[in-house]
Design a binder for these strands. Structure first.
Lengths: 295, 295
DNA sequence: TTTCAGTTGTACTGATGGTATAAAAATCAT
DNA sequence: ATGATTTTTATACCATCAGTACAACTGAAA
């Protein structure tokens, strides 16, 4: 049944890419994925909820990719960041994500609006933390502004690029140019000392975890990724399901459910199919994280 | 009847601000402006055409304001530019323009899409020409990139500003910060020599007039504005109507109708209510413009 | 075989954008 | 003022769409 639901999401995604969100009727989705209306409304309470499910799955994929690019690399290496952005932008474009998001972002659906806003802020926070990796702690006061400017420049440039040389466009050049500009701006702004936004506001807007603790988030995510990629074939599916759940719970949920996660980790440990050392590290991290949360 | 139509636009605008575009039904507009459905579809062929009419009137107003700020001032004075941007952003925010535009920009309506795209490009072109005024001809190769980046930074910052400190926010600080960044970027980029976009692409996308001839556009507009503000009370309405038409035709229309404009100018001349010198200048400019066009 | 969750098909509701049209009202020319 | 013309109104109508309701079907577990 989960496959079926996923299948519906996939089919809907295809249609959204082809025809746009508004222009795709629920009937289209039903026809295209071969389910009945009843089933659809059994899976999703509305069209917007389907869309949110789709977004979540894309976000997760995006996050996966970008984290994969970082694993084992030097986080302060700006070339990695360039690659990460390039990849995300390419996925955006092939999936017509930007169009879809912008089409939907100011619809009359409050839930959707909130979700998209949150998504934007999460992207912003990611850029911010990466900028800290790249430009160093001492530039921190300027890096939220820099992240805001960078996302703005990137979006604007890509938009212009896609309407100027329609079709393919040349994402790498654009990304390179924007990253260079961001670097120069960090330099410039840290010399003049100009600061526009305080980081506290971002923390307030993303109350799910304190921004300073991104090390936990990232470390947790990375550790799970590492375990996943070193999984033996034996009982792979089951382990993957558990690990996916843990990863998802940490990333997507506002307040990860402590006992559920602990239970999942116990199961993994009992199955003895994971790298024991990594698993222990994961347990430690999770424990630290929860202790931190409780303060 | 024109008043009535304008009234409908106004009422629709109110509703759009209150409830958003999608959420406002035609019935709402009918009720709120006290006309019948038949009349509505006599005025506008569809809801989107009403929206376009509304946008046009707002654009015109915006253009009016920003040109008023410039008249009699030194175009290379960056403080004037700051004021112009501030004003436009304030109007944007009070009218919830950005929300409306973004809500609509990726709807399934091709006509609307094209219109909005064109609007964005016109804004971009305006920033570009103002940057030439401000940073000088020698920086020209970098100024399209700078304009694209500036609009991106501005949009991104204002967006963040409005969700961070919701309600009023502090537009002046944000604008100031963004303009400072733009200035620094022009400097930086003209030192490294990095260029991303060529101006020719913008020209191709806005075929209504060659970008190099913006002097005509601006001079035409400004001259008309000057004449308008020096109009005596005698037959003011009639003259204003003619002048408004001329201004509109030059600004909004792809190919201004030569004979109509010439006829309007003749009428104005015959009425002898305008500053004769300015009127002559206007005639000269128009003639030059049409000669230029025909090439 | 019974049970039961999940699925299907169909019919329905209510709202919407848009069309059609005949009657009423306002405008205009002579 | 009268008659012609245009504009406006009221109303009924159509097609589409999101979402609801529900009875019937299916397949697998108990």
């Amino acid at each position: 049944m989960k496959d079926r639901k996923q299948h519906v999401i996939k089919m809907a995604h295809q249609l959204f890419i082809e025809k746009g969100y508004q222009a795709t009727s629920i009937q289209d989705i039903l026809d295209h994925s071969g389910i009945s209306k009843g089933t659809f409304y059994n899976y999703f309470s509305s069209k917007t909820e389907l869309f949110i499910a789709l977004c979540k799955s894309i976000f997760k994929q995006l996050e996966q990719y970008r984290n994969d690019l970082l694993t084992g690399q030097d986080p302060s290496n700006i070339e990695i960041f360039v690659k990460q952005i390039e990849l995300q932008m390419k996925i955006n474009r092939t999936n017509k994500l930007i169009s879809l998001f912008e089409e939907v972002i100011f619809s009359n659906d409050a839930e959707l609006k909130q979700f998209m806003k949150q998504g934007n802020l999460m992207m912003l926070r990611w850029v911010y933390t990466r900028f800290i990796d790249i430009f160093g702690e001492d530039k921190k006061p300027y890096l939220l502004d820099a992240a805001i400017m960078f996302t703005g420049i990137l979006k604007s440039s890509l938009r212009y690029d896609s309407i100027a040389h329609d079709s393919t466009g040349s994402i790498p050049q654009v990304v390179r140019y924007c990253v260079d500009r961001a670097a120069a701006m960090v330099e410039e702004v840290s010399q003049t000392g100009d600061v526009l936004f305080q980081i506290e506001t971002l923390e307030k807007l993303l109350p799910d975890c304190r921004i300073e603790d991104k090390s936990y988030q990232q470390a947790l995510y990375q550790t799970v990724s590492e375990i996943k990629s070193a999984l033996p074939d034996k009982e792979k599916e089951k382990s993957l399901e558990l690990l996916d759940f843990v990863q998802d719970e940490f990333l997507q949920t506002q307040t990860p459910r402590k006992f559920l996660i602990e239970s999942a980790l116990r199961s993994l440990k009992a199955a003895e199919v994971c790298n024991k050392q990594k698993l222990q590290k994961l347990e430690q991290l999770a424990a630290d994280y929860f202790r931190q949360i409780e303060l």
